[in-house]
Design a protein around this nucleic acid. Sequence first.
DNA 1: TGCGATTATATGAGCGTTCATATTTTAAGT
DNA 2: ACTTAAAATATGAACGCTCATATAATCGCA
Lengths: 341, 341
Amino acid sequence: MRITLNDVAKRAGVSRNTVSLVVNGKYDKVKEETRERVEDVIQEMGYVPNFAARQLTGKRTKTLGVILPPLRNAFSFYNMSEMSSGISDAAGAQGYNLMFFVCNERFKQGLNIRLLKDSRIDGGLILDNGRLVIHNIEELERDEIPFVILNYRLERPKTNYVAIDKEHGSYLAVKHLIDLGHRRIGFINGSLPQHIEERFYGYRRALDEAGINLDPECVVTVTEGWVEKTGYEAADMLLELPQPPTSIVTSSDLIAIGVYKRLKEKGLRVPEDISVIGYDDIPIARYQDPPLTTIRQPYYDLGVKAVDILMRFIKNRDQKSVHESIKPILVNRASCSYPPR
Amino acid sequence: MRITLNDVAKRAGVSRNTVSLVVNGKYDKVKEETRERVEDVIQEMGYVPNFAARQLTGKRTKTLGVILPPLRNAFSFYNMSEMSSGISDAAGAQGYNLMFFVCNERFKQGLNIRLLKDSRIDGGLILDNGRLVIHNIEELERDEIPFVILNYRLERPKTNYVAIDKEHGSYLAVKHLIDLGHRRIGFINGSLPQHIEERFYGYRRALDEAGINLDPECVVTVTEGWVEKTGYEAADMLLELPQPPTSIVTSSDLIAIGVYKRLKEKGLRVPEDISVIGYDDIPIARYQDPPLTTIRQPYYDLGVKAVDILMRFIKNRDQKSVHESIKPILVNRASCSYPPR
DNA sequence: TGCGATTATATGAGCGTTCATATTTTAAGT
DNA sequence: ACTTAAAATATGAACGCTCATATAATCGCA
């Protein structure tokens, strides 16, 4: 049997309430001497307040729920870790604990939404891995549970989101190449449907601005498994074009690494023969040969910002919903140069 | 105000108990017709049982707590993700949810142990990142909270752990090189104190078995930041030895990649001039040039096994404590060969 | 010394469930 | 139809806390 408030009270010879006051740090309401006695007993008995009981009286749980997609299909581990660190630091700074709920397949049936609804948490952060969440989002809204969606733009009047501006990311990449003089830019697009779309828009916008015609042949879209192998294969498609591109924009560093590999096999040098640009700035990007120019996605900041927004809603539910973007930045290393000839 | 059992009961014109029975799937105790009516109302009102209230009555929470070290200092993201996937799959298979608690600095003061003690979870999985946990472990034992420590061998009569056998891992690596004919084997050791020790033992054992004298100069130990840079620098130290090794055993793939880099700069070919062996088998290992021979650590299995053990203890507390090892395996790719000359 | 004003502590109800138990309804058997 | 058993449903307490409130102890000051 676990130690309860009552056990402590009895042992210390005081009432439940007094112990409660001590536990909750209401030191001005209890005599110094009594407080010390109670604290000693708490220490000695190893008392920890029962979360459920406290919760039942309507107290804040001081914990945030984070819903993650199944880890195996998660977007880059690195991004996810960065984001989690941001969430963790920001929540910790406000004295909040975190519960990470990892979805499994049952997510579709709404079981995970329950985890946010059953009063274990003060608010939720939902990392969307596509569209899964949409099925149950109205329930959260109806129950007025504060939540923020990360990494996906869900345009609903009562829904908050923070997302990285993928459009801007690929715009930056393409613009960089155009500035270097490239006119024929291959694009290996990938990831979630929404991201694919946004990335494509960024690509197109940069091209448009420079008055370059978009050649659909230059765009390879991969809808899953965006790892080295994907890049390796997609590079092949691009290189076999009648008029191959002088540069390749990718949608992940891993893809770029796969591209590197294929290029090397074909005897093409980066960046002399062909420029390559990554996406994510994962730790190994800088150690590639040549060091990979890439787009850094501030996932840490994404996490921090999401927590900030969520906290605002926890403290005051009647806010206007927040839709925020975080801009990626270009990390210029050595894999891009002027086009050959 | 959130919907309660009572609200549902009133609306459905039945008693609390009936609704409770339906919610808990005790279908044999309630008439089909009533059940359907109640289920409709639940659906309609979006009722979700209050976790705290249910918990208060002593029910299993059907959730496991996972304590993770601060993500930023975590060991390889990849390993951690693998492990989390294992945990997640195994827990999910038994209908259990997961709460990941990410430690922050306050961990030392025992605040995170509270998360395991406050009855939110049925049991805990603690990923140790060194020694942090030790301070509070007695409290968990005293309260008879089922828990398992992952990745660290904490030898206590009432404590369970599952750890990957690092000793065996480096033994395998060194043995592999010895079998190829190497006699002078550099060793870049790293990670947590306990792991460093175990790895060293494995290294020594393989050497002993082959009757090779251990030359302390060949062992470089790095106590933090085991990333590419570390490998790059450690490689330097080894190469500058009067009699440089013909092969290098590392303690992470990232280190091995750093080693590759330095070797290439020095014009040394892998494996013709020098053999290199990694540790972890992270996804990019196979895409290195040459593909990296490495030691695969079954972190996924570690997670699964930990959950299995924990479940046993949840179901029956009076078990003998379990100390288990998981053996890494050698993944033979192309970075090791016969020594030169 | 005693009275009100503080300050310190104690008490009772209630939070939303789940049990154990009590009550009602239905069905079965004579 | 009438008892009895079984099935279906209802009720009250309990879980361990936190509030609002009640009581007791302490103090200042006439």
